Amino acid sequence: MRLRFEKRYFLLASGLLALEVVIALYLHDKIIRPYVGDFLAPVFLYCLVCSGLAVAPMRAAAGVLLISYLIEFLQYFHFLSWLGWQHIRVATVLLGNHFEWSDLLAYTGGVALVLLVEQMRGPRSLAPNGIGGSAA
């Protein structure tokens, strides 16, 4: 795993972050905010990881899914309250504030979408600047 800058993934991550913030701050419905937002969260993380690291898609997706699950389980244990951050809006928007089993399913679906898209795109180079290398 090497550092590299991948513009396409960076732009996708930036757009997804903006969309997630809009969803978190302005949508208070019963479908988009609780389900679509959680579905897109690991897609955002995946794009963020791939924008800066040369890493195989399966490895990146597995890491993102584990991070997503970890954040959700930290919500179960009221992690923000432990830190005294429960009233900090940015922390609650980024890390959430309550555990939901359905979120784990949404995260899994988001990672499944990422892997499906990556598989449809075919192997990608992991070499710096997209020259040479293999997708292993």
Rank of each mutant, 00 (worst) to 15 (best):
G63T: 04
G63Q: 07
V64C: 01
V64L: 01
V64T: 02
V64G: 02
L65Q: 00
L65D: 05
L66M: 15
L66I: 14
L66E: 06
L66V: 14
L66Y: 10
I67S: 04
I67R: 02
I67D: 00
S68C: 11
S68M: 10
S68W: 04
Y69Q: 10
Y69T: 11
Y69I: 14
Y69D: 09
L70F: 08
L70A: 10
L70M: 09
L70I: 05
I71K: 13
I71Q: 06
I71L: 12
E72V: 12
E72C: 11
E72G: 04
E72P: 06
F73G: 02
F73K: 03
L74P: 03
Q75M: 00
Q75Y: 09
Q75L: 06
Q75E: 09
Y76C: 09
Y76G: 04
F77H: 05
H78W: 06
F79G: 00
L80A: 08
S81T: 15
S81K: 14
S81I: 09
L83E: 07
L83D: 05
G84N: 02
W85E: 13
Q86Y: 11
Q86H: 12
Q86D: 15
H87Y: 07
H87V: 00
I88D: 14
V90G: 00
V90Y: 01
V90F: 04
A91Q: 02
A91T: 01
T92A: 03
T92F: 01
T92P: 03
V93D: 04
V93N: 04
L94S: 06
L95M: 13
L95D: 06
L95E: 06
G96R: 09
G96V: 15
G96K: 12
N97L: 07
N97D: 07
H98W: 08
F99G: 12
F99T: 14
E100M: 13
E100A: 13
W101E: 08
S102A: 10
D103R: 13
D103H: 08
D103W: 06
D103F: 09
L104C: 04
L104K: 01
L104W: 01
L104V: 01
L104I: 06
L105M: 10
L105H: 03
L105F: 06
L105W: 11
A106N: 11
A106I: 03
A106G: 03
A106S: 12
Y107P: 09
Y107L: 12
Y107C: 14
